[in-house]
């Protein structure tokens, strides 16, 4: 994986190779989209943020230091974009909102379905909705730490690199995030 990523980045740095870039996007799009979706809480903004992340990565690829992990650099772009967006946005978007032009389809339908039976899926979707609401209710700085820790499954050091915060600060954000989640989810 790392060797592949290194080769792709070399090609992109050399002459802006779009094919290599497409491969790179395919490798990371799910993770980037996931972070964006959990941060913004809705499909459309998430797509916007994820796309913008890749475009910025492409435009600034010369600034990427190959001695560091590419995912760290990319996820930092994504979380920064999302936090910026959350700061700027006025009306609160919701998953319950009907997606324009889809005739009754809400944001939850965009969550990838698992291979479960339809009845279980209803429960799962309700659960998903509830968990997502709890995540989105967190203040952005706790939210990003929790998402990277428990959804992207990264360790404290990696999160500290991505968020550009000292490890102890990351830990504090995770502690507070966990406490806030506990208060929301304890009655399940």
């Amino acid at each position: 994986m790392d060797a592949v990523v290194k080769r792709l980045i070399k090609e992109i740095k050399k002459d802006g190779d779009e094919k290599a870039f497409a491969e790179l996007v395919d490798l990371y799009k799910d993770k980037v989209f996931q972070i964006a979706y959990r941060m913004t809480g809705n499909h459309y903004e998430a797509q916007d943020m994820a796309q913008e992340s890749f475009l910025r990565a492409y435009a600034n690829i010369d600034r990427y230091d190959e001695n560091r992990k590419f995912s760290t650099w990319l996820f930092r772009i994504t979380t920064n974009l999302c936090i910026d967006r959350l700061r700027k946005r006025k009306p609160d978007y919701s998953l319950d909102e009907e997606i324009k032009g889809t005739d009754g389809l809400t944001g939850y339908a965009q969550i990838a379905a698992t291979d479960q039976l339809p009845e279980d899926q209803v429960v799962t979707l309700e659960m998903q909705e509830w968990v997502q609401k709890a995540i989105v209710s967190l203040p952005p700085k706790y939210r990003s730490a929790i998402i990277l820790r428990y959804i992207e499954d990264l360790n404290i050091q990696q999160i500290s690199n991505i968020l550009d915060l000292p490890e102890n600060t990351v830990k504090t954000h995770i502690h507070r995030g966990r406490e806030a989640l506990r208060k929301r989810l304890k009655d399940a």
Binding site: D30, F33, Q34, Y37, R38, Q110, I111, A112, T114, T124, M127, Q128, V131, Q132, A134, I135, I146, Y150, I151, D153, L181, L185, A188
Partner: peptide
């Protein structure tokens, strides 16, 4: 719960 959030 958070960890079980399905991967989209």
């Amino acid at each position: 719960f958070v960890q079980s959030a399905s991967h989209i």
